[in-house]
Amino acid sequence: MGQALNQGVMQAKLWYAQRISAMVLGICVAAHLAMIFYAIRGGLTAQEILGRTEGNVLFAFFYEVFVLACFIHAPIGINNILQETFPRSGIGKPAAYVLGLLILVLGSTAVVGVYSGGAL
């Protein structure tokens, strides 16, 4: 009974975390989509991208928040999908952790990359 309750509390917290991160992502994704449409006009070059992001603290902050929100949101979603599609395999949790790690590490690296423009 105690274990079921702990699991219940865990489920509730994961649900909450996913919805809160979803709210953050709602703003981030909307902004990102708008930026995409703005940026792709007339083609997209590395120069153009870095021209906007290099040394721009605001962008760096925005993108890092974006990465962190994805880090929370996507692994929980993946776990749900795998848990329901392959219930006895137990693959949900490890896959979620792997995805989380990839997003956090690669995402933060990308943020550092576009902020520094290779000047590291």
């Binding site: 590395a46 990465v67 690296t109 990308a110 576009v114 290779g118």
Partner: peptide
């Protein structure tokens, strides 16, 4: 859509982290 986006995201970040190579290196990866 969520599943496909989740699979795409690491690749997207990997691509963007090529910016660490500087503008030219980034352009080459792009």
């Amino acid at each position: 859509s969520g599943l496909l986006l989740a699979c795409f995201l690491p690749l997207h970040f990997l691509m963007l982290s090529q910016s660490l190579r500087g503008a030219q290196g980034f352009e080459q990866s792009l």
